[in-house]
């Protein structure tokens, strides 16, 4: 459904942020991009969102090359990025201006109930807590029913309890329409909680180090041994990626070449 084809991004100052990323994401899949800082996770997400152009390679969504933001792609940023001059309800309905007022009101009300902010429709963003603001941002991104949802460390600024409850909200919303989700995170537990597949990235230049399938059934119990084991495996892979080893895939090829 979503595919990256030898994607590279070099910034104007010569920094190579991404190098030859090739990856396929299936419909309805939740993929987590996991990695330390500076490995190009956010750059990759911005390319998928159409906010930046790749230097080489292409991103295809259902066969179409992404070159600019699309209506069927929703984005949740690291910060809530609400419009401070719009009420909570107007923020959620920002992407629905093509609908009639009554249709819009219906969708916005439902979305606010889903994220547990039903009574806050008329308030200003400044009157909400950080977690509530991020929930408004989630509602704003999901109310347009995107088929691809991009999330850039959306919960990194929140405390552990708020984060866990937002994971629950998000999965409940995801279950309704099952959009494809690509999320960036540096939090191993978050990746294991949410993702079907974890892509571990390596910095300088940003590239894919390894892929981990996460077969745990939902809802996932954070305290189960299987969850712990998955977490440990992801952590181990992340550690190896930071110790600057050569990417897993290349190493396999080298070994094969050494055979004779």
């Amino acid at each position: 459904m979503l595919s990256f084809d030898r994607l590279s991004k070099t910034y104007a100052d010569g920094t190579r942020a991404l190098s030859a990323i090739t990856l396929d994401v299936g419909r309805g899949e939740i993929v987590a991009l996991l990695g330390g800082s500076g490995c190009g996770k956010t750059t990759l997400l911005r390319l998928v969102a159409g906010l930046d152009r790749p230097s080489e390679g292409a991103i295809r969504l259902d066969g179409e090359v992404i070159a600019e933001p699309r209506a069927d792609v929703g984005v949740i940023f690291q910060e809530p990025r609400l419009f401070p001059w719009l009420s909570v309800a107007e923020n959620v309905g920002f992407g629905l201006s093509h609908l009639s007022a009554s249709e819009r009101d219906g969708l916005v009300t439902t979305a606010l109930v889903r994220v547990g902010l039903a009574g806050h429709a008329k308030r200003w963003p400044r009157e909400l807590s950080g977690g509530q603001q991020q929930r408004v941002a989630i509602a704003r991104a999901l109310v347009t029913k995107p088929k691809l949802l991009l999330m850039d460390e959306p919960f990194s600024a929140l405390d552990a309890t708020t984060r866990a409850s937002l994971h629950g909200h998000l999965l409940a919303l995801w279950q309704e329409s099952r959009p494809t989700v690509v999320m960036v995170t540096h939090d191993v537990e978050e990746a294991v909680t949410l993702a079907d597949r974890i892509i571990v990235m390596q910095p300088k230049p940003g590239r894919v180090f390894d892929e981990l399938d996460n077969p745990l059934a939902r809802p996932r119990d954070r305290l189960s041994p299987a969850f712990e084991a998955m977490k440990r495996e992801a952590l181990r892979t992340l550690d190896r990626s930071l110790r600057d080893e050569a990417p897993h895939q290349e190493k396999a090829a080298e070994t094969a070449g050494m055979w004779w």
Partner: peptide, 21 residues
């Protein structure tokens, strides 16, 4: 820039971007 990007994500035209953001 961050708030302008939200406008871009919602694919606002130049006029709508001026008026709404």
């Amino acid at each position: 820039r961050k708030i302008v990007e939200v406008g871009r994500v919602f694919r606002l035209s130049r006029l709508a971007m001026t008026r709404r953001v």
